[in-house]
Nucleic acid binder design. Structure first.
Lengths: 236, 236
DNA sequence: CAGTGGTCTAGACCACCGA
DNA sequence: CGGTGGTCTAGACCACTGG
């Protein structure tokens, strides 16, 4: 039974709904109902409510009292600010990282991660998720080395909107070769301890997905996003 | 009745426990029990469990399955990383802020906040909480102006440990005059658009509470903190 | 009004811990 | 073993929404 795959019904409901939201089976803006979920999974309200509350905390759902529960729309403002926060923090972290007395072993780690990235995108049955996992692992290296692991966890916890955003990105064509090339660039700059150019390259790297998606956002996936205030559009 | 002060029993339990934790009535490390809470407030497990889950999410409690629920210890590592994140982000924000074309009105806002701070600390029945609220309001100005309000909210949401840390700070003697002086310094540097010195001053400002508390942490409040790995002690 | 969520209870049974 | 939390159900009643 499905039962055995999950610790409990709450987790089952939560995980399944989450995946459906990420996969856009449940569309941004869509209405869902407590009772429907109860019936669908054949469980009582308690585990369903707990699951829904979790999903609300994680920003997948928004509960409107006495009306209904909606899948959240993607929020470009939040995504931009998330990227900005990543950028601010990572600039400083990398600055610390290149000044670490003994980072030679770590540089090898980074080189290894990049090689893995190169290999994986060549495989015929390659899945974008795998790449994003490797990408995250690489960034994690310098957070860990500069003893900022907790910060990395916080940043990860808040990136829900960003995650779904990237999910759209899968559908679109993603230029993994370019991404790996940028990673190599970053590595070179780390080695040469070129703080200034590192900053620019990192900015380019983190903001690239936003630039690439701009058209898709404005046209194809328009309904999945919250209205933006007009002035906010070009000042990422 | 107490009932009328709160939306529901869950909120009542949550708010009261939270305040007791912040006030150190419930001490870091202390064991509490679900059943005790139920009896004490005369409510069933459901609202208590929900309240406890919220407090756990907010890092006030840690639930150890089948054993008990403990008030969390303060975690210096997290506090340090929180300050670091504040610092990284705020450096960049202020850099954007001083380059804003029209920030003259905003500078007046900052001046106004600083004046209020000066006044409030002179009052005889002045409470530190009021000062911290004003302090937060001031920092918020440049987050808002650079359109990074969401980021500010995220940072606020994660500062629980930091909040209790500051709570200890109340007990200790806090040099509010110095803090206001630093604020004035920051303002001057904003006006002169001196990005480099702004960075240093901000660092000093944000890390000051940590330095001041160092002795208290190591001696007086030792039991309230988690063990730190020895090497982490001096590398904030 | 009917429908949705919001709140809560009582009580059941299970799973794990430490003595 | 006894005690703690972990999970879940069934069912009750309330409060707000929209038509």
């Amino acid at each position: 039974m499905t039962q055995l795959l999950y610790k409990n019904r709450e987790e089952m409901v939560c995980k399944i709904l989450k995946q459906e939201i990420l996969d856009l089976v449940l569309k941004p803006g869509q209405l869902i109902s407590e009772n429907e979920i109860c019936e669908r999974f054949n469980v009582s309200r308690t585990p369903v409510r707990n699951a829904l509350r979790l999903l609300e905390d994680q920003n997948f759902l928004i509960v409107v009292p006495y009306r209904g529960i909606y899948v959240t729309l993607l929020n470009l403002i939040e995504i931009k600010q998330m990227i900005y926060m990543r950028f601010s923090v990572e600039v400083m972290i990398l600055d610390d990282f290149i000044n670490l007395s003994s980072n030679s072993g770590l540089i090898e780690d980074i080189e290894y991660m990049i090689r893995k990235q190169e290999n994986i995108i060549k495989e015929p049955d390659f899945l974008p998720e795998q790449f994003y996992r490797l990408d995250a692992k690489m960034h994690e290296i310098w957070f860990e080395a500069t003893k900022k692991k907790k910060m990395w966890e916080w940043l990860q916890a808040q990136k829900i909107h960003y995650t779904r955003f990237r999910m759209l990105d899968f559908v679109t064509e993603t230029d993994f070769i370019r991404i790996v090339k940028e990673h190599k660039n970053i590595l070179t700059l780390i080695k040469s301890k070129d703080s200034t150019r590192l900053k620019d390259t990192l900015k380019e790297h983190l903001y690239f997905s936003m630039k690439r998606m701009r058209h898709q956002i404005d046209v194809v996936y328009k309904d999945y996003f919250e209205e933006e205030p007009a002035e906010g559009k070009f000042d990422i």
